[in-house]
Simulated assay, not measured.
Amino acid sequence: MIKTVDAPNGGYRFMPGVSQYSAGVAALPGFALERVRFSKPVPLRQGFERIAQILKDAGRPLTAFAACELRSPAPFTESGFVSFNEEYIGFLKAWGLMPDGVNPVARSNVCPKVDPPSEPGFYAFSYTVPASNAPASFVIAGSGEAPEGKANYRDHAIRLGDTSPAAMQEKAKFVLGEMERRMSAFGGDWSQTTGVQLYTVHDVYPFLESELGKRGVLRHGLTWHFNRPPVVDLEYEMDCRCVYTERVVQA
Rank of each mutant, 00 (worst) to 15 (best):
K3Q: 13
N9I: 08
Y12H: 11
R13G: 04
R13H: 10
R13D: 01
F14H: 10
M15S: 13
G17C: 11
Q20P: 07
A32H: 06
R35S: 08
F38Y: 06
S39Y: 03
K40H: 13
K40Y: 12
G47C: 03
L55R: 06
K56V: 10
D57Q: 14
P61T: 02
A67Y: 02
C68H: 10
G80E: 00
S83N: 14
F84V: 09
N85V: 03
Y88N: 08
K93Q: 14
A94N: 11
G101A: 03
N103R: 10
A106H: 06
N109W: 06
K113C: 09
P117N: 01
P117Q: 00
S118G: 14
G121T: 01
Y123F: 15
N133H: 15
P135I: 08
F138R: 04
I140M: 02
S143K: 10
A146P: 02
A146I: 03
A146R: 05
Y153D: 01
A157Q: 06
L160Y: 05
D162I: 08
T163G: 11
T163A: 15
S164D: 04
A166G: 10
M168D: 07
K171G: 02
G177E: 07
E180A: 12
M183W: 05
G188W: 02
Q192I: 04
G195M: 13
Q197L: 13
L198T: 05
V201F: 11
V204D: 00
L208C: 07
E211K: 08
L212P: 00
L212D: 01
L222G: 05
H225N: 14
D233H: 07
E237H: 08
E246I: 05
